[in-house]
Design a protein around this nucleic acid. Sequence first.
DNA 1: CATGAATGAGAGTTCATTCAT
DNA 2: GATGAATGAACTCTCATTCAT
Lengths: 203, 203, 203, 203
Amino acid sequence: MGVKERKERDRQEMRDTILQSAHQLFVDKGFDDVSIRNIAEAIEYSPATIYLYFKDKNEIFYALHMEAFKIFNEYMFTLAEIQDPFMRLMKMGERYMEFTFKFPKYYDIMFIMQAPMNCDINSEEWKMGEAAHCQLENLVKECQDTGHFTGKDYKTLSFLIWSTMHGMCSLALRDRMKIYVEEERSKMLEKSFTMFKQILETI
Amino acid sequence: MGVKERKERDRQEMRDTILQSAHQLFVDKGFDDVSIRNIAEAIEYSPATIYLYFKDKNEIFYALHMEAFKIFNEYMFTLAEIQDPFMRLMKMGERYMEFTFKFPKYYDIMFIMQAPMNCDINSEEWKMGEAAHCQLENLVKECQDTGHFTGKDYKTLSFLIWSTMHGMCSLALRDRMKIYVEEERSKMLEKSFTMFKQILETI
Amino acid sequence: MGVKERKERDRQEMRDTILQSAHQLFVDKGFDDVSIRNIAEAIEYSPATIYLYFKDKNEIFYALHMEAFKIFNEYMFTLAEIQDPFMRLMKMGERYMEFTFKFPKYYDIMFIMQAPMNCDINSEEWKMGEAAHCQLENLVKECQDTGHFTGKDYKTLSFLIWSTMHGMCSLALRDRMKIYVEEERSKMLEKSFTMFKQILETI
Amino acid sequence: MGVKERKERDRQEMRDTILQSAHQLFVDKGFDDVSIRNIAEAIEYSPATIYLYFKDKNEIFYALHMEAFKIFNEYMFTLAEIQDPFMRLMKMGERYMEFTFKFPKYYDIMFIMQAPMNCDINSEEWKMGEAAHCQLENLVKECQDTGHFTGKDYKTLSFLIWSTMHGMCSLALRDRMKIYVEEERSKMLEKSFTMFKQILETI
DNA sequence: CATGAATGAGAGTTCATTCAT
DNA sequence: GATGAATGAACTCTCATTCAT
């Protein structure tokens, strides 16, 4: 049995090596501009080797998609230390933006790209996606317990908040802020986010 | 003279046929994954024929982009009849959504798709895009004259409003509302938009 | 009959117009880099029209080839005024070089290019080519009558002279003088030609 | 280790096969009129395969060019045994012609064909070309020490000699000796070369 | 397990040429 | 007689993928 296990472990290691490389390239250049060859070169193996660990390029894509969600959720789920739910919600927003601009390509595949989304309700990613969404809704509800968002449907508000965050992030990521001069763009994002937080405070 | 006219009409028709096909494909597969060959096959002509009507792939994209903006601006600029600026702003939002879901592919091209954006500040599209953006900013400012949005920077608020609208629209268009069951999705959009308007009223 | 004649005349005129255009383009860019389209544009007709006057691109090539020979021979055959045959021979060399560097592309097709040379001994070009060659041989022979080239076979010498001229010209035309710095190249040609004439004088 | 060696040998063989094919085609049709596809077809491989052995079309040409120069220089540089410089020069000429008609396609590539010449002064070919040229100049100078070519600039004379040799060779190679009947052509070349040597002796 | 070798399919683009009008 | 429209065939080059070794 030990042999089998070691083999399996080796296999996992190799998969990880490939994914790490792919990850790096992907984050740098985006999915379409990364070739199997690029990945192979990066890990100093032949392209053919990749196919021993992944069926095809799509499978790598899915794996990365999942990794994206994993990282995203790590960003979202480490807010427990903050007591006040509203503060926590604000922090969650900050984290969202942080993630977006630190991993723009990941944000892209998660929330923007026209992609063969695995819709299988039992899939790993689906669960991760839902978990994050759930957390938001729960948090908004919690905020209501401390006097915020009175009279508002928490589910609807959650979607509205998400939409706003996504709106800002995706306009930036997909280069739709060119109406503003280059230097002002990030400032505009910041001001806009600040205003958003402030509005949330008053309602 | 009739001949010349007919020829010109034929030419326009062909251009339109190509554009329609291209449009469909672009939105389905993204700019990079559509080839001139694809388009040619779709309209059952040879690839070379495309080049009789468009200089290159980019020109096709630009043509679509421009048409999209034209229709969009028609939607945005017919609000003059409404006296009250705030009412007009609300109406503008409605129109925005209307346009989005009536011409999802155009919306996609304008605000979501990654593509070689013509940044020429003198280009037709740029002007159209800026016009729409200007109109929003002016409208927000006008609202302030009638007692709305006190103390808020109108430019920042304009971007925030746009972001929120875009967030909702693009999440819907790019199939990121799957956490909600199918039947609830449009309802959620509606509720969310209504809540947004309501919030804007109170700030 | 008058109609037929006019038609024929018109036809010739059009052929000439095309050839003139082709000539210009050809001299500027070389055979391979001139397209039927280029020619058509230059004369402001449609590409299809060209085909009413020439079977295909090759036929234009042949026509130009012939024109090249015609111009070449004009350069070679206007030496009659010079009495002394040796002086005439020298002048002929000068004319050869003049032609070469004034019509490099023509020189190229005539004497360098790997081309579908029409070898028909009755063809126009053949006759022109031979005429020029004959003239050289006759001239060399004439020189012998005035005491030059004693004891040399005039045919062989003629070929040797031609070879030398062609050697210098074709090395220059096909960019094989790069061992010399740019500014010295034409000077080297000149000096070399001068030395050649001087040698011919002494033998 | 045997495996590695065999693979390397196979690789070299394939490169050679490609080069041979390319060479034939280049000389037959000219650089521009040979396509990677042509070459691929000739060796009955797919076009993509070519790219496994050569970066691009230019690299194929350069490889040939270099090989040509290598052989050429081998012909030129093995004259040391001849003491008398003038005799050596004559021998060099003979070798030049020998090379030309033994490897006409190489000669073509080196001195006639129009192609993207690598002008990099540090390139291997450049050095080889220059070495040969230098040798000629030095040899001519040496001849002057033994009483030849008095009063002539050795550089200019070197170029003139090269031109003459090249003139004869290239007229022959590019089929411009058709004015002579087939059987006389090589005789004419010979006689002409002999006369050239004789002339050099008297000046 | 790993890979070198090979390829089919495809990208954007150009051009000589044809043909119905 | 002239042409607008159309195309087949070609170009260089890249890439995901397969397979014998």
